[in-house]
């Protein structure tokens, strides 16, 4: 049996080549424990090129998988032989350990779990951005619609106000003309007192003129 270790996208891959018996499996187990003790809990054990794995080995992998899962890790198996996969899948229901037919499938499983646990931040951001963009567009169109309504309303109101103002101006002018007419057309009938005062004034004026005439005649040089 040969063991080889590889690190791919945060997953430790333990490649096993050759037949695996009970003793050899203890070596594999020790390898898995060492990986866990190094703080790496995403482990893929690749039995692709090995002959068989017994039930006790599956049980031991299941136990280690339970430990790995305590800190969100996982141990998965890769077996190309369908009979071997069936053995793992039927060992317990539901299966205690996931078993894939190819390494890439196992790696994809880890990637999916990672995405499920915490959605890819970049994607999350993009999703949020898209939602925000949609909201923004909706809001923009609403604002545009409201602005149009407001403009139309303002236009109508301004026109009405202008008409009202013109009408008021016309009325005012008409009113002023009417007042003027009324004022100019007004006739006050003179009473006796007014006549007497007028006569008095005229008499005063006549007396004044007579006096001036007399003065003028006296001042005139007498002809010899």
């Amino acid at each position: 049996m040969k063991l080889r270790m590889e690190d791919k996208v945060g997953v430790r891959i333990l490649h096993i080549e050759g037949a695996v018996d009970a003793h050899q499996f203890s070596v594999i187990r020790a390898g898995m424990v060492k990986i866990l003790k190094n703080g790496k809990n995403k482990i893929l054990v690749n039995f692709e090129s090995s002959a068989n794995v017994d039930q006790d080995a599956i049980r031991q992998v299941s136990e280690l998988n339970a430990a790995a899962r305590e800190l969100s890790g996982e141990i998965v198996l890769v077996m190309s032989d369908p009979k071997m996969r069936g053995l793992v899948e039927n060992f317990s229901k539901p299966p205690l350990v996931m078993c894939f037919s190819a390494v890439q499938e196992g790696l994809d499983h880890f990637n999916k779990s990672k995405a499920k646990a915490a959605p890819e931040p970049e994607d999350a951001a993009t999703k949020n951005d898209e939602e925000l963009l949609k909201q923004n567009q909706t809001l923009k169109s609403e604002v545009e619609q409201l602005r149009k309504q407001l403009t139309e309303t303002s236009k109508g109101e301004a026109k009405n106000a202008k008409d009202e103002s013109t009408r008021s101006k016309g009325l005012l002018e008409k009113l002023e003309i009417d007042i003027e007419k009324l004022q100019s057309g007004r006739r006050v009938a003179p009473d006796a007192e007014t006549y007497e005062a007028k006569i008095g004034q005229l008499e005063g004026r006549i007396h004044q003129l007579v006096e001036e005439l007399k003065t003028h005649q006296n001042d005139k040089p007498k002809s010899p």
Binding site: V33, L36, K37, G39, N41, A67, E70, L71
Partner: peptide
């Protein structure tokens, strides 16, 4: 955090 994970598994696995 890597150290915390490592320490946890060392505690969990004991002297294995």
């Amino acid at each position: 955090r890597d150290i915390m994970r490592l320490l946890f598994y060392r505690a969990r696995m004991g002297r294995e």
